[in-house]
Simulated assay, not measured.
Amino acid sequence: MKKVQIILIAISLCLTSFNSATADKYFNSVVVQDSIPVQSKEEKRAKAKQELKDSHQRLFVGVNYVYAKLSTDLTFKLENSIFSANISLESNFKLPATRMFFTASLIYRFTPRSGIYVAYYGITRKATFTTEKDYIFLGHTIPTGINGEAYFDTRVLSAGYLLTILQKDHAFLGAYFNVYIMNLTTGFKARHIDLDANLGLTLPLPSFGLAAIFPVKKWFKIHANVGYFGLSFEDLGGSISSFSLLLEFKPIKWLGLNLSYQSFDISVYDIQDGINFIVDYNFRGPALGVSVVF
């Protein structure tokens, strides 16, 4: 009987000790949890901004030198006429079918969620040649045997808002909503002949696209960008699509050496002085460049 009592007393002491330890552990955890300060929304935003600044991914500026193959077709049609003329500026007017030129892009994220995206490129081309047959150009006839100069200049600026969709472990995915300002200028100059047209689209033309950065190694990243714009009015409209794939090699933290492939397609129509213009223009090619990140 005494043995049973001793066993019961021992079990009771063990249970009491266990309950006391459990209570102390629970009490201590509650105290620790209660001692952790709760951050306000403003404090969380400030912390996220500081983390973005410290990540050195707030500002990206890239400049690339593109070697591109170009194709430019112009179609002219007088209003209320069933006849039209089509000219390839590379085949008929001897403009260079390949060209080297600079492109530039910028991404600036002023908050972890929001930023701006800007892209620009410009190409100037001209050629001197002698016409081998009659051409209808800008509503006028250029006769055979005329020695003159043809040109086609392109200026494209795209700028707008960048929304961060995903940001994790230096990987980035964003959607941009941009406005295009585009100016296409073409013409033909010869003795007693001076034809030119400014096929400029300076309206706020919306463009939508995605920009992404995928880190593969600490010293190697892949950038991708795709965009599209389309607009159609009775006497003005067209479409623009762009694509780029860039490999960035980082010898140091803030500097990148880039190898990329870029393509850009424009198809626009306009009416000037009773003439319908249709421009189909594109370039595609590899590029080398540099980028800086802060």
Rank of each mutant, 00 (worst) to 15 (best):
L163G: 01
F137H: 00
H170S: 06
A127M: 09
A159V: 03
I116D: 05
K25H: 13
R155E: 13
Y228P: 10
A171R: 08
T164G: 05
L52W: 10
L173C: 10
I213K: 00
L162K: 03
Q57L: 11
Y161T: 03
N80E: 15
G209S: 00
I222C: 04
F101I: 04
E43G: 06
G238N: 04
Y161N: 02
K168E: 11
I252T: 05
L163W: 12
T164W: 05
L70W: 00
A159L: 06
I36E: 10
I87K: 03
P286G: 06
D169R: 14
I136G: 04
L70G: 02
T141A: 08
R191A: 13
R109W: 06
L163D: 06
G285P: 08
K25A: 14
A171Q: 15
S239D: 11
Y180S: 01
F172V: 12
V63M: 07
Q33G: 07
V179M: 09
K250E: 10
I240E: 05
D270F: 14
S81M: 12
L247A: 10
N225M: 10
G62C: 05
I11E: 15
A127I: 00
P96G: 08
V226L: 08
A23D: 15
L74Q: 06
T141I: 04
S105H: 13
E132M: 06
V279G: 02
Y176R: 15
V268R: 00
N258A: 12
T103M: 06
V31T: 08
I116R: 01
F233G: 09
G209I: 02
H170V: 01
S40G: 15
L236G: 04
V226P: 06
Q50D: 07
V216N: 02
L288M: 05
Q167S: 04
E51M: 15
S291I: 05
K221C: 00
C14Y: 03
G200Y: 02
Y176I: 07
S17F: 08
E248N: 08
A190R: 01
R125I: 05
